[in-house]
C-alpha cells in the first residue's frame, strides 16, 4: 500500500519538477530555449570530459573483478564474517556494490535465481544493494569531472560508510526476518 502510493508519487515527481521549472522560468521572462541549449552545451562538454576518467576506472575495476581478486579479499575477511554471522556471499555483494553498480545488480539477480528473492541471503542482498551507492565510481567520476587529483580522505570515508551499511544490513535483516 505505502509502497504503491510512494511509487505513484515518484512517477509524478519528475514531470512535475520539469513543469515547475519551465512554468516559473516563463513567468520570470527567461529566454527558455536559449538558456536550455546553453546548459545542454555545458552538459555535452562535461560528458565528453568524463570519458578518460570513466575509461580509467572501468579498466581498473574490470581487471580487479574478472581476475578473481575480489574472492581473495572475501577470503581474507572471513574471520570477521564469522564474528558478525554473515554469509560469505554477502561480503562479496557488499564489495562489488562499492565498485560497480551494474555488477552488483547482476550479482543480486544471480542470488535471486540460486536462492530465491525471499531467502535470507536474497533479502540481505536486496538490502545491501539498496542501501549504498557505487562509491569508487562516484568518487572517480565526480572528482574527475572537475579535475581534482587529490581526493584526500574521501575514499576512506566512503569505505567506512559502506562497511557500516554492510554491518547494519546484516543486523537488521537477521532481526526482521530470522
Amino acid at each position: 500500500m505505502i509502497a504503491e502510493a510512494l511509487g505513484a508519487s515518484v512517477s509524478w515527481f519528475i514531470p512535475a519538477l520539469i513543469f515547475v521549472v519551465f512554468f516559473h522560468a516563463h513567468l520570470k521572462g527567461v529566454r527558455v530555449f536559449e538558456e536550455f541549449v546553453e546548459g545542454a552545451k555545458e552538459g555535452f562538454f562535461m560528458a565528453i570530459k568524463l570519458i578518460p576518467y570513466l575509461v580509467g576506472i572501468y579498466v581498473a575495476i574490470g581487471i580487479f573483478r574478472q581476475s578473481g581478486a575480489i574472492d581473495v579479499i572475501v577470503k581474507l575477511f572471513s574471520p570477521v564474517l564469522r564474528i558478525i554471522k554473515a554469509p560469505t556471499e554477502a561480503l562479496f555483494v557488499s564489495i562489488v556494490r562499492s565498485i560497480s553498480g551494474p555488477a552488483a545488480l547482476g550479482l543480486m539477480m544471480e542470488i535471486f535465481d540460486a536462492h530465491g528473492p525471499d531467502s535470507f541471503i536474497g533479502r540481505l542482498a536486496s538490502t545491501m544493494v539498496g542501501s549504498t551507492d557505487t562509491t569508487f565510481y562516484i568518487l572517480a567520476v565526480y572528482f574527475g569531472s572537475v579535475g581534482i587529483k587529490k581526493a584526500r580522505y574521501s575514499p576512506i570515508v566512503g569505505l567506512l560508510a559502506d562497511f557500516t551499511s554492510f554491518v547494519a544490513s546484516v543486523y537488521i535483516v537477521r532481526k526482521m526476518f530470522l
Binding site: V37, G43, L54
Partner: peptide
Amino acid sequence: SAEGAVQRSINLIGIVSLWLGIARVAEKSG
C-alpha cells in the same frame, strides 16, 4: 571495460545535456 566506459559516456551525453539544460533554466529564473 574500456569499450564499456565509452559506451556509458556516450549514453551520458544525452542525459547530462537534458538535465543541465533544465538546471540552467531553473538557475536563470531564480
